[in-house]
Computed example of a mutant assay.
Amino acid sequence: MNRKLLSLFGVISLVYFTCFSSLRYLHAETVFLDRHEHSSQLHGTKVQFLARDLESGIDYVLADSDLTTRHSPFSTFKIPNMLIALETGVSTSPDHWRDWDPVKRPAEEFWPDVWKQGQTLEQAFARSAVWYFRDLALEIGTEAYRDYLTSWAYGNSEVPEGSDHFWLGDILKISTREQVDFLEKLVSGELGVSRANLDSLERASFQGSQASISLHGKTGTGPDQGGAWEGRFSGWYVGYLRRTEKRPVVFALHVSAPSFSALSSFRKAFSLTLLQDAGLITSVQFEP
């Protein structure tokens, strides 16, 4: 009887070890980054930040960050959107060209000049040209979006029927932690996306390098009150560090600020400052 119990215990132990050793890690350690050290930069803002080192399993969190409240992804949604466009064949390649139709998509006052022209998918990603991705959304369709976003556990995965702007308001929402979880699956090759399409995103999102590290990222922003361009704005900088000798670092920063100008350059710059605080990069300077 004791031998049987011992054998059963051995089987259970083996199953337990096999299951849990297959996980990359259990995020057992969290390092908190000092918020007060940056109080002068944070005046008037609300900032949440999480970086995850996939090599060590350590989460680096800006102290007192709210990582669970969901927000509109705004243009950070161009990361999954580009992948979905390529995977469905709606875009045949990152060089897929679309003409801008000023009748269908009339320019708004805040549009930069680079939006007011035809462009490729890769250019539209880099320029954050909203009209291009709204056109894509109509061709991709509601069901495809729902299927992909649900399988990827992307925020609340909500997509209204026929919408071409669901990522720009209060419908599709995602938290800071969920952004990082999604990016972890992305860089770990767990989204079921082809290698060629991942490489296309890698090129489009490239934002510079230092030593053996390349930076990939995407910003996103919008007014806290729809159409209130003179009021508070919220925004993101999300991305990852690709390292030649270690697994990547994935990160997300969400910020609410008094105005667009207060967060425009702040998002990326402060993200790099925190990555340096965490010892994950040696400098905030990246060569194009």
Rank of each mutant, 00 (worst) to 15 (best):
H71T: 09
G162H: 13
V130F: 00
F49K: 01
G279F: 14
T273Y: 08
R105S: 08
G222N: 13
L215Y: 03
T18C: 13
F133H: 01
A85N: 04
D181G: 03
G192K: 09
L198G: 04
G141H: 08
R3T: 10
S39G: 15
A124C: 10
Q285T: 12
T69V: 15
D66L: 10
D170E: 13
T88I: 14
I79E: 00
L183I: 02
I58Y: 05
P288H: 06
F17N: 03
F110R: 04
E109T: 10
F110T: 13
Y237R: 11
D59E: 10
V130C: 10
S65T: 05
I213F: 05
V249G: 03
F260C: 05
G155W: 00
A85E: 00
A129E: 01
L168G: 00
T142C: 08
P102M: 12
P102T: 11
D181F: 00
G192E: 09
L50P: 03
F260A: 10
L168A: 08
M82R: 03
L215C: 11
T88E: 13
E190R: 15
P94S: 11
T69N: 09
F166Q: 00
I174R: 02
V238N: 01
E139V: 15
Q225I: 15
F182I: 06
G235Y: 02
